[in-house]
Design a protein around this nucleic acid. Structure first.
Lengths: 331, 331
DNA sequence: GAATTTTCAGAAAGCGCTTACATGAAAGCA
DNA sequence: TGCTTTCATGTAAGCGCTTTCTGAAAATTC
């Protein structure tokens, strides 16, 4: 028996083909009873929709992809949550491409955009080569980047330097004069040098306040709680240790916080600690940090993507999300 | 510029779409001059017949889908990580279907299994109706379920009751006699009643030890840190408060822990707290908990899926992952 | 130089599916 | 009770492409 089509199913279920299509695509838009009848017919006829025909009629693949180092940096999960929520009611699937080891990164974007048919791509915190961009452009794949701007497509960013300044000003205001910094040294090939930019802003504001940020107060290491713990211990071992530490990420701040407490140092009395990101866990732990609207960034990315998908003539947008310092218990 | 179609080519070459089609499919049925014109246009426009492209892509199109309430219960993110890692080097894409609000759940699983061209599906913690299962089976969509077993397909589970027993035995061993429980009351339609099973095991072991678990020591509420905080406060307000509390999830344990500390109660001296899951954050916070190998479960699911994909004759497997009590600082 | 066959290309009818748009019934509201 | 919403369904207009049908021009006959 040849493969059955919508028509066969519709006929058997005593409905129109439109209803069959709806049952398959937007089940909650059809009456449960009818739906059941149709589903029964589908089963009875072993109906399998022809994906190709569907894609054609729909004029889109109905899929958007997200590329990010999800499991290396927890903040991307929060961004992903925003993406998922924004997409929830929409007829788009969400395909995730995880980039954890830089080895994969290189050819990834290229293959993704070519082989797989996506309607849109969200790129997070990934630096791209010229050819990658050409690839994307050549495939006319609509793209929005988060945390890694490029003139070729829409982007959502934050002002890292401003974030650094925010922290410095806050700390100086609180009367601190010996400010330190814990940040990333080796930036993996698949991530962006945000740490450096935060440091720059931090330094600028410190100097503007008439203070200075000596080299021994800057501790860079590969991002991890363990390294941050090591860093803070070194800082506290100095003859004149700092009284406040700005960590380039919440992950590092968390590592530092734990190490400080283990050492018996009181936070914030003896040492103030400020993070960056405002991960979910920050609120739990009571970490004072710079909030960068992670979830919102994901939602926004989807909105911008869809807007352009609807109307390709729409100009490319570069949004800069604001930052705010969330005062909690560690500084 | 969006991808060009037969129409674009036809227009550019000054012929009808039929001719374009003939050039592509049966070139010798068209006049060489015309053919050349059309071919030139095809090149110029980078025309690729859509269906063909799709078909080609589909031939090697490996996609596997994961369906879970990712953002409601953080443990699924950890499971997802396992899935992503296992898939990392393999030619499969990972599409995530998030099910957070129960409203969608109804026809969702069914439609996913039909509409989307997936090679395999991983179902996490989702209870399914008989019809859903039939549909999946009818579509011969290879499926592995985690935390929600069904004879129709492979599954990965844990023994929740055994986990509960483990905790009770541990606590009793430590000399506790007044044991309490904080668990889930309203289980959303899209989740599984694991809390109840953990409680059962807990209770059994308590009784077996000659103790009892009075009703007022059982506090059920919708899963959230806030509710867990409320629960623990109620428990501590009792005339004879418990000395140990088992929480059905780390999330709840975290909420309880924080509330206890805020109240000035020392953990574990005054009250012992044990969670369940062993989320990443548990290690950070020093939470004693029952580890259920979240990441491993994801990896395993992929392995089992691929094994069956390679050889459909392979029998269905039902794996039960072991649990272990991780002793840290809260009990 | 007509009458014929042959070539070639366009018009148009689908292929199986999606999706406005329209309609009628049921439900809510005054 | 009459009127507006909402919901469920059907009608019909495509999507990009293939293929049959058709006729005009070109090539071939005599």
């Amino acid at each position: 028996m040849a493969h059955s089509t919508v028509y066969d199913v519709a006929h058997r279920a005593g409905v129109s083909i439109a209803t069959v299509s709806r049952v398959v695509n937007t089940p909650d838009k059809v009456n449960p009873e009818t739906r059941q009848r149709v589903l029964d017919a589908i089963d009875a006829l072993r109906y399998i929709p022809k994906a190709e025909a569907a894609a054609r009629a729909r004029k889109s693949a109905g899929r958007i992809g997200v590329l990010a180092p999800f499991f290396t940096y927890p903040s991307f999960i929060q961004r992903l949550r925003g993406v998922a929520h924004a997409l929830a009611e929409l007829p788009y699937e969400l395909t995730v491409y995880n980039v954890d080891n830089s080895a994969r990164h290189d050819g990834y974007v290229a293959s993704v955009s070519i082989t797989r048919r996506l309607d849109g791509l969200i790129l997070m915190a990934l630096p791209f080569t010229q050819e990658t961009i050409q690839r994307i452009v050549a495939n006319s794949l609509e793209t929005v980047s988060i945390e890694c701007a490029h003139p070729a497509f829409s982007s959502i960013e934050i002002d890292d330097a401003a974030g650094g300044r925010l922290v410095a000003e806050y700390l100086v205001n609180k009367g601190h004069t010996r400010l330190a910094f814990i940040g990333d040294s080796k930036i993996p090939a698949y991530a962006f040098p945000t740490s450096q930019r935060r440091l720059n802003g931090y330094q600028t504001a410190i100097q503007r306040a008439g203070l200075s940020l000596p080299d021994e107060y800057i501790s860079l290491a590969e991002q991890s709680m363990e390294n941050a713990a090591r860093s803070i211990n070194q800082l506290l071992d100095l003859t004149t240790p700092p009284t406040a530490i700005f960590c380039a990420s919440d992950t590092q701040a968390l590592g530092a916080l734990k190490a400080a407490r283990q050492r018996g140092v009181r936070v914030p009395q003896d040492i103030a600690i400020i993070g960056f990101d405002d991960l979910d866990i920050a609120a739990y732990v009571g970490l004072t940090t710079v909030r960068q609207h992670l979830e919102k960034s994901g939602e926004l990315a989807v909105e911008m993507l869809l807007a352009r998908l609807e109307d390709r003539a729409r100009p490319i947008q570069n949004v800069r999300l604001n930052l705010e310092l969330v005062e909690r218990e560690t500084a």
